[in-house]
C-alpha cells in the first residue's frame, strides 16, 4: 500500500530535539483531524522512540535520527524512526517492561508506552549498525471524504 502523504525529517541526537520531533510529527498527523487523545498518544510514542535513539543508540554522542511518516488511505499513520547507533543486542529483553540498561532514572517503560499507545510496533536492529522502530496507529475520528 502506498502512502497518500508522507514526510521526512532528519535531526541531530540532541535531547533538545525531542520536543521538536514529537511536535513536528503530530503537526503532520493533525491533518487527519485526530482526537486530542490520539494526537497525545502519537506524541508520547514518538518521544519515547526518539529518546531511545539519544539515550541508548548514540549514548549521548552526536548522531542522526531519521524520521519518516506516512499517511495511508484508511487513515493509518505509519511512523518510522531510524538510527545508526549501537543497535540492540537483545530486542525481547529491551522491550520487557521495567528493563533498562540505565537504571538510575530511566523507568524502562519506553517500549511499553509505544506498545500501549499505538496499534502496532515493530523493531528491527543490528548490533553495531542501528535500530529501526516502526509505529502504526489508525486515526478513527474522521471519515475521509
Amino acid at each position: 500500500m502506498k502512502a497518500v502523504n508522507e514526510m521526512k525529517l532528519t535531526i541531530e541526537s540532541r535531547s533538545v530535539n525531542e520536543s521538536f520531533a514529537r511536535v513536528a510529527v503530530s503537526a503532520f498527523v493533525a491533518g487527519l483531524d485526530p482526537t486530542v487523545e490520539e494526537l497525545s498518544d502519537i506524541k508520547t510514542a514518538v518521544s519515547e522512540a526518539v529518546t531511545n535513539c539519544i539515550v541508548h543508540a548514540y549514548q549521548n554522542t552526536m548522531g542522526r535520527i531519521y524520521i519518516w511518516v506516512g499517511i495511508f488511505e484508511d487513515s493509518t499513520v505509519k511512523i518510522r524512526i531510524r538510527d545508526r547507533g549501537c543497535g540492540i543486542a537483545n530486542i525481547e529483553q529491551a522491550m520487557t517492561p521495567l528493563f533498562t540498561s540505565q537504571p538510575q532514572e530511566r523507568a524502562g517503560l519506553g517500549f511499553a508506552v509505544m506498545q500501549s499507545f499505538c496499534d502496532k510496533i515493530s523493531v528491527r536492529s543490528t548490533a553495531g549498525k542501528g535500530t529501526t522502530v516502526t509505529l502504526m496507529k489508525k486515526i478513527e475520528s474522521r471519515q475521509r471524504c
Binding site: R22, T44, S47, E48, E105, A107, L109, G110, A112, V113
Partner: peptide, 9 residues
Amino acid sequence: FMDSSGIGL
C-alpha cells in the same frame, strides 16, 4: 506533556 521520563522522575 509527559512521556515515560516523567515516570522516572
